[in-house]
Simulated assay, not measured.
Amino acid sequence: MKFQFSPSSPLKTLSVISALSLTAFALPTQAGEWSANAAMTNNYIWRGLTQTENEAAIQGGIDYASDSGFYAGTWVSNVNYAPSDVYSYEHDLYAGFAFETGGVSWDVGYLYYNYDKEAEFDFGEVYAKVGFGGFSGGVWVLTNTEADEGLGQDFGAGSTYYISADYGFEISNGIGVGLHVGYHDGDFAEAFNGTTGGYYDYNISVAKDGFAFMMSSTDVEGPAADGGYDNDEIKFVISYAVDISM
């Protein structure tokens, strides 16, 4: 959820190249190829928090991955954050480098979150992820934002971070199960999400052939847990996604 920022009011949230993760960690698309993706979901959840006031979202993106391990892409979704009406979309741009050594997958890159011009809350993060077998872990760290700091707040590089741990496995007939836990903390996270202090998010997901079902919750406190967001309650998310070769 996102809030319009002012020195006396809560701020808003981000979104990571979202969508349900079936596997705990995956490299980008095959080398030297373009691909696209599209998805529908009854609730856009990012780091445990609804980005659409628990309403539906239509999402999609385009990606390129080279044989060197370099990749870049863009992704877009509708969003909605009360009480402000200046947010209607989220448009992400990202680039990075992914490679594998001795069975261990690595991925480092930069992600930029772009919102409506009137929102004046764009921001960027650097990230690093590592995966082995079905396990993966990652960290995202704030690097820059156009948002103005409030009294006593620090929106400087490195001041806000998100860490996550995931495990994914297949049970039978192509049915995948994903387990996730994450932690988000820092002044920018509080402002952007409308939270009080750091919070944990956790979910379990089941997916097959593009369809996915997720149960997600958090221990969040503050405005993010109130009035229509209900981010401290269990959320049930159903989605369908397709990959498109180009």
Score class of each variant (00 low, 15 high):
Val242Thr: 14
Ala189Glu: 03
Tyr183Leu: 13
Gly124Met: 08
Val206Asp: 08
His180Pro: 06
Gly69Arg: 10
Val181Trp: 07
Val76Met: 15
Asp230Trp: 01
Gly197Pro: 05
Ala212Leu: 14
Leu11Ala: 11
Gly178Leu: 05
Tyr71Val: 04
Leu179Trp: 06
Ile244Gln: 11
Met214Ile: 05
Tyr183Ser: 03
Ala207Gln: 09
Val104Tyr: 11
Pro10Met: 06
Glu125Tyr: 11
Ala56Gly: 08
Phe132Ala: 04
Leu20Thr: 06
Thr13Gln: 13
Val108Ile: 14
Gly194Tyr: 09
Tyr127Trp: 03
Leu179Met: 08
Gly158Phe: 06
Thr41Val: 08
Phe70Arg: 14
Ala98Asn: 04
Glu55Thr: 10
Asn80Lys: 14
Gly222Pro: 09
Phe213Leu: 09
Gly182Glu: 05
Ala26Lys: 02
Thr52Val: 10
Phe25Lys: 11
Ala241Met: 11
Thr50Phe: 12
Tyr94Gln: 13
Ala212Arg: 03
Tyr112Arg: 15
Asn173Val: 07
Pro7Arg: 04
Asp209Ala: 15
Trp46Ala: 12
Ile17Thr: 07
Phe97Pro: 00
Val130His: 00
Tyr202Arg: 12
Ser21Glu: 01
Pro83Ser: 01
Ser84Phe: 00
Glu120His: 15
Ala19Ile: 07
Thr143Pro: 00
Gly152Leu: 05
Ala82Gly: 09
Trp75Ser: 14
Gly60Tyr: 08
Ser217Thr: 15
Gly168Lys: 14
Ala38Tyr: 00
Ser88Tyr: 07
Gly156Leu: 06
Ile45Phe: 06
Asn80Val: 00
Thr50Asp: 05
Ile171Phe: 11
Glu33Leu: 08
Ile238Leu: 15
Ser66Thr: 13
Ala157Asp: 01
Tyr115Cys: 11
Glu90Leu: 13
Trp46Leu: 00
Tyr183Cys: 12
Asn173Lys: 15
Gln51Phe: 13
Gly60Leu: 06
Val237Trp: 03
Leu11Val: 04
Ser164Arg: 05
Trp46Ile: 07
Ala65Arg: 03
Met215His: 04
Thr41Lys: 00
Gly156Glu: 04
Val237Cys: 07
Asp187Tyr: 05
Ser6Asn: 10
Phe25Glu: 00
Ile234Asn: 06
